[in-house]
């Protein structure tokens, strides 16, 4: 689960031009990761068994992933783990996947659920890379999921062009979650109270036995050269009058002022 800037945030770029200014942002649980948490909770509720652990990593000092993890615990997750320490800062999707893989190898699991992508950098590869590093199958961009505990397998539905692809895979498996999979629940007030008592553990790179050199900027395969804002959109104009007058005026503007037609 990744904590990302709130979707309505207005982003500005830092002075050296290779990152966004994170100092005044408010953060939320990545919306696609909410689908993953909700799906995990629903599977647990349907089966009446199992445990839901939420894993996150602090990639920037300004992030407050503890808050996002508490939100997941308030939704109903059983425990939360935060990978924290300067070694985890910076880096790219590969170092994130490397760190998560080392942590996941210390946990028992049958099913790993990820959001299909984080809405901040829209990379969309962390879940798939973790599957690769663990040597287990993955099904990406899933919008319906059946879990069969007896046969230890999942049947996952993916929206593809002109239809639905149905994929079967056996445990342990990585699923990345797409919109439409479910409607994430709201944390209830009693849920928020209970979440305060649930375990939220912090793991450093020593705890997960990984060399800090493989993480952060030194382990990254990608380097951000520059971040640029999208071009500013000019203010729109509303043309007065009935349809025929407005259309005539529109044609005139496109022809004479904008020289587009």
């Amino acid at each position: 689960m990744k904590q990302v800037p709130a979707t309505e945030s207005k982003l500005t770029i830092v002075a050296d031009g290779n990152d966004i200014d994170r100092s005044n942002l408010s953060f939320i649980v990545n919306p696609y990761d909410e689908f993953a948490v909700e799906e995990a909770l629903q599977i647990k509720e349907r089966l009446g068994a199992g445990e839901v652990t939420v894993l996150s990593m602090r990639q920037h000092e300004s992030q407050k992933p503890e808050e996002a993890l508490r939100t997941c615990l308030a939704m109903g997750a059983d425990k939360a783990i935060l990978l924290d320490g300067p070694a985890f800062h910076g880096g790219d999707s590969f170092t994130t996947a490397t760190a998560l893989t080392s942590a996941i190898q210390r946990l028992p699991f049958d099913l790993l659920l990820f959001g299909k992508q984080a809405v901040d950098d829209d990379g969309g590869t962390v879940g798939i890379q973790v599957a690769e590093l663990l040597g287990i199958p993955h099904v990406a961009v899933v919008n319906k999921l059946e879990v069969h505990p007896v046969s230890r397998a999942v049947v996952a539905h993916r929206q593809v062009e002109d239809g639905i692809e149905v994929v079967e895979a056996s445990f342990p498996v990585v699923i990345t979650c797409q919109k439409g999979l479910n409607e994430p629940r709201y944390p209830s007030l009693p849920g928020i109270m209970k979440a305060k008592q649930k375990p939220l553990n912090t793991w450093t790179c020593e705890d997960i036995g990984i060399d800090p050199g493989r993480l952060g900027a030194s382990g990254a395969k990608l380097k951000t050269l520059r971040v640029e804002p999208p071009p500013t959109r000019l203010t729109g104009r509303i043309l007065d009058g009935d349809t025929s007058t407005a259309v005539k005026e529109l044609v005139r503007i496109l022809h004479e002022e904008e020289k587009l037609i």
């Binding site: 909700e38 479910n182 409607e183 994430p184 629940r185 709201y186 209830s188 007030l189 009693p190």
Partner: peptide
């Protein structure tokens, strides 16, 4: 009520 309806407290 939607699927994720949450009652008041």
């Amino acid at each position: 009520r939607k699927a994720n309806y949450e009652p008041g407290t």
